[in-house]
Design a protein around this nucleic acid. Structure first.
Lengths: 195, 195
DNA sequence: CGGTTCCTTGAGGATGATCAACGAGGGTGG
DNA sequence: CCACCCTCGTTGATCATCCTCAAGGAACCG
């Protein structure tokens, strides 16, 4: 996947690399944003954990994608925690260097404008789907955002992950999925979900 | 309040004005975004209505603020409907003119980058608060976002509006508020909420 | 003062969460 | 190769909570 910003350009702006093990925290909720982060290899999830220990997944990020930019841009604290999903290599540059990068390359600034616009668009859609709807609707909405192609494809998320995305419990997801199987809204073969 | 973009500048870029009556729709969910909208006088809410007729408020916008930019920037459909809260005067320019405005004034582009970053930041916070939490937590989170000052102030939203923001029902909001009154988390005097 | 709009309360029901237990598969090390 | 462990999936029973429906009261406005 094409990186958000070219690696070589980031290096010119004083970038450095860092490796994270699976499950390792990259930054924490309420930390002040100090760096621009971009994934070179691996994957990252942004999560909130409430006082009952329940996890809510704000989003997944993969190779080439940047994350945690909004708080950096407005000089705020992170609203969520970033955790490596597997062994992950990150490239990062300091806030000040990120700002001069944006200033010197209007095209890149414009790319970020589009990126943030798309993020808001997605968040508006997911929050509308999640807030009012029944479990089945929430899951369908989530599956729709997963889909990369038109044809039926296998969903690569566990039921627990679907639960954490939709704000439901695992058991509820499982029961909703079996109902959806009966209604032919999804196929389930050997525990794998096809949609 | 300082306008997002100066009125005179918008006029130079071919702006025109339009007046809306209370309750009038400015654009609809699933319409293709074709204009940049900014409020000159009045107020606007962005809402989704689900199949049960239940309303979810994505956000309120007031004098000087722009709205509906993300779908415009990424050339997508609106994820929600915009409705005038009262008699409202809007200034709008076409997509193409908006793009050349951004191109010719890097400072304005940078302002929008900050604006969108703040919007994502706010949405991340509200969705985390809404998804996992009990009614009381949702309401508190909403009241926190309302607060403009430190001291106790009167909340200017109806219970129905709080319900529509938090994804709860009016009766649930009312009952939660009375509990919160007993716990001294809010004051309620003559039906008015102080927080 | 009549009509809205908003607020309030109660009863009853639906539904998702919780708890507990177990099954199935995959990987690892002895 | 097999025993073990760990993660993931599954099921049933029970419970708490929020929603629904219905009805009425309070405040506000022209």
């Amino acid at each position: 996947m094409k990186p958000q910003v070219e690696i070589d350009l980031l290096i010119e702006f004083g970038a450095f690399f860092k490796e994270y093990e699976i499950g390792e925290t990259i930054f924490c909720e309420d930390d002040l944003a100090r760096f621009y982060y971009q994934i070179v290899e691996g994957g990252v999830k942004m999560i909130n954990i409430n006082e009952d220990g329940k996890e809510y997944i704000q989003g997944y990020f993969c190779e080439g994608q940047s994350f945690g930019e909004p708080p950096l841009i407005i000089e705020e604290k992170y609203p969520a925690t970033a955790v490596a999903l597997k062994k992950t290599k990150i490239i990062k540059i300091s806030k000040i260097n990120f700002f001069s990068l944006l200033e010197q390359f209007p095209v890149i600034q414009s790319d970020f404008l589009k990126l943030l616009a798309r993020r808001i668009y997605n968040k508006a859609n997911t929050s509308k789907d999640i807030i009012n709807q029944k479990p089945e609707f929430r899951i369908i909405a989530f599956l729709d955002t997963c889909k990369t192609r038109q044809e039926k494809e296998q969903i690569k998320y566990t039921r627990q992950e679907i639960a954490n995305f939709t704000g439901l419990r695992v058991e509820t997801v499982i029961r909703a999925l079996s109902k959806m199987k009966q209604k032919k809204k999804v196929e389930i073969i050997n525990h794998k979900i096809y949609y």
